[in-house]
C-alpha cells in the first residue's frame, strides 16, 4: 500500500471518529477568517477611497488682497519652500465669482444684487500625491496660513480628520481580528489534534511498537490541520463573498455604497488569506505533535 493511501485512510478514520470536535474547529476557523476578512475588506476599500479622495485633495488659501504678478511669484516661491506641489493656481475675485455662479447653475440669479468682487481672491494648492498623512497636510496648512496676507486656509479639515481617524480605527480592528484569527486557528486546531492524540493513545502506542515510522504516525495529524485550515478558510472567504454579493444587491441604488466602487478582494488576496490560514493550522497541528506525540 502506498504511503499516501495509508495516510488518507488514517485521516478519514480520524475524521469519522472525532467528527464532533473537528466540526467545531472547522466552524471556529471559518468564523475567524470571516471576521478578519470582513474588516480587512472594509479597510482595503477605505484605503482605496482615501487614495481617491487624496487625488482630489486641495488646500485653498484665501487672501486679503488680490496679489499682483510679482507677489504671486513670491507666494509661489514661499509655497515651494515647504515642499514640492502638484499645482499652484491663483484665483482672482472675478474668477471666484464666475465659478460660484457656475456652481449655482439655474439659481445664479441670487447673485444679481451682489457686487462681482465680494468673494476673496485665493490660491488653490494641490499637494503632491505623497503628501498623504493627516499630520503632513496639517503642517502644510499651518504653513500656508502664515503666508503674508492670508485670511484662512481650507481643505475640508473636519471631513479629512474624521476619515483619517475612521481608517485608523479600522486598521486597529483589522489587527485585532488578525490576532484573533492567529490565536483561534493555532489553538483550536492544536486543541483538537491534542484531543485526537489522547483519544488514540492506544493505537499510537501500538503503531510505534509494530514499526510505524514517525512520518507514518505524524503525517495524518499534519494533514488534518492542513485540511482544517484549507476548508475552514475557504468557507470563511466564500461566506464573506456571499455576504458581499447580498449587500451589493440589497443596497444597490442611490446610496452611500454607490458613492465609490466597493469591490471584493482580488483573487491573490483571497488566496493569500487561505494560504496563511493553512500554514497557521498546520503550525498548530505541528506544535501539538511536538508537545504530546513523543515517538
Amino acid at each position: 500500500m502506498s504511503f499516501w493511501l495509508t495516510v488518507f485512510r488514517q485521516v478519514g478514520r480520524n475524521l469519522r471518529q472525532t467528527w464532533g470536535s473537528q466540526l467545531m474547529t472547522l466552524l471556529t476557523v471559518s468564523l475567524s477568517v470571516l471576521i478578519f476578512a470582513f474588516f480587512y475588506l472594509i479597510y482595503a476599500n477605505m484605503l482605496t477611497l482615501g487614495d481617491k479622495l487624496g487625488d482630489d485633495l486641495s488646500l485653498i488659501v484665501y487672501l486679503e488682497e488680490e496679489p499682483g504678478p510679482e507677489l504671486q511669484q513670491q507666494l509661489r516661491n514661499k509655497i515651494l519652500t515647504f515642499d514640492e506641489v502638484e499645482e499652484i493656481r491663483f484665483i482672482s475675485r472675478a474668477e471666484a465669482y464666475e465659478r460660484f455662479a457656475k456652481q449655482l447653475g439655474q439659481n445664479q440669479d441670487v447673485l444679481n444684487d451682489m457686487p462681482k468682487d465680494f468673494l476673496p481672491p485665493s490660491i488653490e494648492v494641490i499637494p503632491m500625491k505623497n503628501l498623504r498623512s493627516l499630520n503632513q497636510v496639517k503642517l502644510f496648512s499651518t504653513y500656508l496660513s502664515r503666508l503674508p496676507g492670508t485670511l484662512k486656509v481650507q481643505y475640508g479639515q473636519d471631513w479629512v480628520e474624521r476619515f483619517y481617524y475612521f481608517t485608523k480605527l479600522l486598521s486597529i480592528i483589522v489587527l485585532l481580528s488578525g490576532t484573533l484569527l492567529i490565536l483561534t486557528t493555532i489553538f483550536m486546531v492544536a486543541y483538537t489534534i491534542r484531543l485526537t492524540i489522547h483519544g488514540r493513545q492506544a493505537e499510537l502506542e501500538l503503531l510505534k511498537l509494530v514499526g510505524a515510522t514517525n512520518n507514518y504516525i505524524r503525517t495524518p495529524f499534519l494533514l488534518e490541520g492542513l485540511l482544517q485550515g484549507a476548508i475552514g478558510s475557504f468557507l470563511g472567504i466564500f461566506s464573506l463573498y456571499m455576504l458581499f454579493q447580498w449587500i451589493k444587491l440589497r443596497f444597490s441604488g442611490p446610496s452611500f455604497l454607490n458613492l465609490f466602487e466597493f469591490s471584493f478582494f482580488a483573487p491573490e488576496v483571497s488566496f493569500t488569506i487561505i494560504t496563511v490560514s493553512i500554514l497557521l493550522c498546520t503550525l498548530g497541528s505541528y506544535s501539538t505533535m511536538q508537545k504530546f506525540l513523543r515517538i
Binding site: M1, F3, T6, L207, G211, A212
Partner: peptide, 13 residues
C-alpha cells in the same frame, strides 16, 4: 495493522 506500516499491498494484506 502490522502489515500496513510496511506498506504491503491491500490484496496481499
Amino acid at each position: 495493522i502490522s502489515m500496513e506500516v510496511s506498506y504491503k499491498k491491500p490484496q496481499i494484506i
